[in-house]
Simulated scan of single mutants.
Amino acid sequence: MRKVKYTETNFHDKLSTIIDEFPRLDDIHPFYGDLLQVLYNKDHYKLSLGQINTARNLIGKIAEDYATLLKYICLAYLEQIRQHMARLPSIDPNTRSILICGYPNVGKSSFINKITKADVDVQPYASTTKSLFVGHTDYKYLSIAQQAALFHSIKSFFMNKPLIIVCNKTDLQPLEGLSENDMKLVMEMKTEAMKTVVGQGGESTYDDGAEFS
Rank of each mutant, 00 (worst) to 15 (best):
M1Y: 03
Y6R: 04
Y6F: 05
Y6L: 06
T7A: 10
T7S: 07
T9V: 07
T9D: 10
F11D: 00
D13F: 06
K14I: 10
K14D: 10
T17A: 11
I18P: 02
F22D: 03
F22C: 07
P23F: 03
P23T: 01
L25G: 03
D27C: 06
F31M: 13
G33P: 01
D34M: 11
L35M: 14
N41M: 02
K42W: 02
K42N: 15
K42R: 15
H44R: 15
H44C: 11
K46N: 14
L49Q: 01
G50Y: 11
G50C: 09
G50D: 13
N53L: 11
N53K: 14
A55Y: 07
L58S: 08
A63T: 03
A63S: 12
E64D: 13
Y66A: 13
A67I: 03
A67T: 06
T68A: 15
L69N: 15
I73R: 13
L75I: 13
L75E: 15
A76Y: 10
L78F: 08
Q80Y: 10
I81Y: 09
I81M: 14
R82N: 14
R87S: 12
L88Y: 08
I91T: 13
D92G: 01
P93F: 05
N94T: 14
R96P: 07
G102C: 06
F111S: 00
N113I: 02
N113G: 03
K114G: 02
K114Y: 05
K114Q: 12
T116Y: 01
A118Q: 00
V122T: 06
Q123L: 10
Y125W: 09
A126S: 10
T129G: 03
K130I: 08
K130S: 14
F133M: 03
F133I: 00
F133C: 05
V134N: 02
G135S: 03
G135T: 01
H136M: 06
D138V: 04
D138Y: 09
Y139V: 05
Y141I: 09
L142C: 12
L142E: 12
Q146D: 11
Q146V: 07
Q147F: 09
A148I: 04
A149W: 04
H152I: 12
H152E: 15
H152Y: 12
S153Y: 05
S156K: 07
S156Y: 11
F158C: 03
F158E: 05
L163V: 10
L163M: 14
I164D: 06
I164E: 08
I164H: 08
K169I: 00
K169E: 13
T170V: 11
T170S: 11
L172T: 07
P174N: 05
P174W: 01
P174V: 01
L178Y: 08
L178A: 04
L178G: 05
E180A: 07
E180C: 00
E180G: 04
E180M: 01
D182A: 06
L185V: 00
V186Y: 02
V186P: 02
G202V: 02
T205G: 12
Y206H: 07
D207F: 07
D208T: 12
E211A: 09
E211M: 08
E211D: 12
